[in-house]
Design a protein around this nucleic acid. Structure first.
Ligand SMILES: [Mn+2]
Ligand SMILES: [Mn+2]
Ligand SMILES: [Zn+2]
Ligand SMILES: [Zn+2]
Lengths: 135, 135
DNA sequence: TAATATTTGCAACAATGTTGCAATAAAAAT
DNA sequence: ATTTTTATTGCAACATTGTTGCAAATATTA
C-alpha cells in the first residue's frame, strides 16, 4: 500500500488522511455531502481546500453528470490536474443513484470531421450491478 | 419556423421570447452568464425559473462538463425533461472555450457486463473547427 | 371585455464557494 | 531533539448561486 499523500508531495495531516480514508472506504464515487457526513472532524473550508488540492495533484478526479452535483473518486492511474489516464466510463444508476467508475476493455473511439478530439469522456446511465440482482 | 413556446404549452411572455431568441442567436451552447449579459431586461430569479421550465418541457438541455459550469442549448429533436432523443456529442474546445452540440453519423455504442445501459452521453474536448482553421 | 390562470419581481432566505489572516501543525535544517 | 522554516487550519467575513412566499402585473380563456 503506497502513501498517496507523500507520493504527491502533500503534507500528511490528520484531516487529509481522514478524507483519503473515506475515499478508500467507498467503491463508488462520492459527493462532498458524503465526505462531510463521514468526517469525524468536519470543517467546510478545509474540506473545500482539501478537495481542490487533491484535484490539482491528480489524486482524485471530478465527475460531473447532467443534473447531478459533482462526485469525486480516487484516480487509480497516475494522473495530474490536467491529464488523466483513465480509460473508464462513468455510470450513474437511475435506481440507487450511485455513481461509479467502470473499467472497460474496449474504450469506444470517435472521429469528428473538422474537430480534433483530444479527450473523450463517457457517461452512461441505467441500472447497476447490485440493482439488477434484485437487491 | 415553429412556435416553440406554444408547442410546449408555455405562455408567451416577452421574457421567455427574449431568452429563446438569445438561444437561437448562438450556434453553440451557452452558460447562464451569457444569457444574463444578452438580456435587455434581466431578472435573476425569473431567468432561473425560465431555464428550469425550459428544461422541464424539453425545450433546452443541460450540458455539464467536468470542471465547467453548466451550459444550455436548444433541443433540436422532440424532447422531454427526462427523455432526450439526441444522437450528438458535446464538444468543448480547450482553446476558445466554446461548448457545442455536434451531430455524428455513427454514435458509438457500448456494452458493460453487469450493467444495463439506458443512455450514453459523450463529451469530447479538443480543438474546434474555427480554431483549427488558424483563426 | 370580464374572469381566470399564470408569470413576474421583490424581499428574504438558504446553500455553496472564496479569501485574508493569525494560530497551529508539519517538514526541514541545525 | 530543538529550532527554524514552511505549509495547513479554522475563524470571520464576504461573494456567488439558487430557492421560496407572496402580491402585483400580465397572459390566456371564456
Ligand atoms: Mn472515474
Ligand atoms: Mn447538446
Ligand atoms: Zn443501482
Ligand atoms: Zn475553439
Amino acid at each position: 500500500m503506497t502513501n498517496l499523500l507523500k507520493d504527491k508531495k502533500l503534507s500528511e495531516t490528520p484531516f487529509r488522511k481522514e478524507v483519503l480514508a473515506i475515499f478508500k472506504n467507498y467503491k463508488t464515487a462520492i459527493p462532498m455531502a458524503v465526505i462531510e457526513r463521514d468526517l469525524k472532524d468536519y470543517n467546510r473550508i478545509t474540506l473545500y481546500r482539501t478537495i481542490k488540492i487533491f484535484l490539482e495533484k491528480g489524486l482524485i478526479h471530478e465527475i460531473s453528470m447532467t443534473g447531478e452535483s459533482a462526485n469525486y473518486a480516487l484516480c487509480l492511474s497516475d494522473c495530474s490536474a490536467t491529464v488523466h489516464h483513465h480509460q473508464h466510463v462513468h455510470f450513474k444508476c437511475t435506481q440507487c443513484e450511485m455513481v461509479s467508475c467502470v473499467e472497460v476493455t474496449a474504450f469506444p473511439s470517435l472521429q469528428l470531421p473538422d474537430y480534433k478530439i483530444e479527450q473523450l469522456e463517457i457517461q452512461a446511465s441505467g441500472i447497476c450491478k447490485s440493482c439488477l440482482q434484485g437487491e
